[in-house]
Structure formats: structure tokens, C-alpha cells
Design a protein around this nucleic acid. Structure first.
Length: 221
DNA sequence: GACCAGGCACATC
DNA sequence: GATGTGCATGGT
């Protein structure tokens, strides 16, 4: 149904306003946050990023030079701290060894090349890559996450079985290729996920409630 | 004390 | 290609 997504966006934006994403000060901070937030609440990640900042480590070369054991201790509060230390260091290796330590040079790549370059890093999957392309490089790549999946499926816009790229392609074909729009929409969907679209949904308080199908809510995701 | 959180890689069928 | 499992801490 054409216009459904634009309609959904308008409802959310009218009700909730701009979300001011990504909550990070620099492109590098966004990249670090994108790894650390995998399957984790942002609250823990924000504290950890502050610790890195206070330690003067929020810089690709210095962070890459830091002892692994020290990095693991710093990352402990975000969970999966050993695997995330590896993933973060994989990304740091790309920046330091292939781009001379320059995040700017990496993020200068055209959208598709940047996305593929990031995906080649072990530990960077589709959502993390899209988050970096959109929120660090400010280039148009729609970010899909579990909330997007859940919300869209409950409204009948996609199948529950839809994969990442089915959902991403659906969004990018329905919406104008616009960075601020992609930015706000993903952030608004996360807001809806946090507040109303849990496993046990509270749809009556959700701004998208008018768009729910009459037949009621399908199986929770 | 479950259950969840802004995923991903890897094993196995 | 689809499905299952380990990774780990902190908040509700």
C-alpha cells in the first residue's frame, strides 16, 4: 500500500518530535557505540563511552594501541565484553591499517563501497554497518533493527519471516532517499519499541495505533 | 528470578 | 538456505 510508511513516519514525528540521533559527539564515537550497543541497552553503552573518553582513549590509534586486557575491563559493563573487544579491535584495525588512522578518509567512501568495506569486518553485520553509514557518514542507508521488524510485522506491512534485506528494501523503495528522514524514522521506531511495542505490546498508547489492522495484533515477535 | 536489551558469527542440518 | 546457539552484564 503506497504511502503507508510515510504516513507512519508523519504520525510518529507529529507525536514525538525530533529524536536527536545519534547521541554521540563524533563520527568515531558513533562507530564505537554501534559495536557496543549490539543486543544491549544504550544506557550501559553511554556510560562506557564516557569512561573511554575520560581515559583519553576515544581515538582510533590510541584505542588500538591499548592493551587488550585493559579494553576488556572497560567494556565489561556492556556485556559480551570479550567478543565486543575483538569486534571493536577488528574495526580499529581497518581504520588504522587501511586508512592511516583517519575515520574521515574511511567515511569519505561512496555509500555502497563504505557499506561493503564495513561488512567485511568480522563483527560488523548489516545493522551495525547501516548505522555507521547513516549516523557517522550521514549517507542514505536505512537501518533495520528488531523493533523495525516487530512493528512492521504487527502492522502487516511485512511478513514475520522477512529477512533484513526484505525490510530494508521495502523501506528504501517506499520512502524518498533522504538522510534526515532515514535518521529520524529509525530513531522514532526505536522509541516506539522501547515504550509500546514490547513482546507484550501496549498499542493503545502508541501513535501508530490508528494504523493497526482491524483484525487485531498478530503473534508477537 | 525470569526476562529483556538499538546483533553477529559459527555450527549443523 | 534456514534454523539453533554462544556470547555476558545491568536494569525492570
Amino acid at each position: 500500500m503506497p504511502g503507508t510508511l510515510q504516513n507512519a513516519y508523519d504520525l510518529l514525528y507529529s507525536a514525538l518530535g525530533p529524536q536527536a540521533w545519534w547521541p554521540g559527539d563524533s563520527p568515531f564515537e558513533v562507530m564505537v557505540g554501534a559495536i557496543l550497543v549490539q543486543n544491549t541497552s544504550w544506557r550501559n553503552v553511554a556510560r562506557t563511552i564516557d569512561l573511554l573518553k575520560e581515559a583519553g582513549l576515544l581515538d582510533p590509534s590510541r584505542l588500538y594501541a591499548a592493551p587488550v586486557a585493559e579494553l576488556e575491563e572497560l567494556l565489561r559493563p556492556v556485556g559480551y565484553f570479550r567478543i565486543k573487544t575483538k569486534r571493536l579491535r577488528n574495526m580499529l584495525r581497518l581504520i588504522v591499517e587501511d586508512f592511516g588512522g583517519s575515520v574521515e578518509r574511511l567515511l569519505e567512501l561512496d555509500t555502497e563501497t563504505l557499506r561493503e568495506t564495513l561488512l567485511a569486518v568480522s563483527g560488523v553485520g548489516p545493522e551495525t554497518a547501516d548505522s555507521i553509514v547513516l549516523y557517522a557518514a550521514h549517507k542514505p542507508s536505512f537501518v533495520v533493527d528488531t523493533y523495525t521488524h516487530r512493528i512492521f510485522a504487527r502492522h502487516g506491512w511485512i511478513d514475520y519471516g522477512a529477512g533484513y534485506y526484505e525490510i530494508k528494501d521495502y523501506c528504501e523503495s517506499e520512502l524518498p532517499r533522504d538522510v534526515p528522514l532515514y535518521n529520524e524514522f529509525h530513531a522514532l521506531l526505536v522509541h516506539v519499541g522501547h515504550h509500546w511495542c514490547k513482546r507484550v505490546p501496549r498499542c493503545t498508547e502508541c501513535p501508530l495505533q490508528p494504523l493497526l489492522p482491524e483484525t487485531g495484533i498478530a503473534e508477537p515477535l
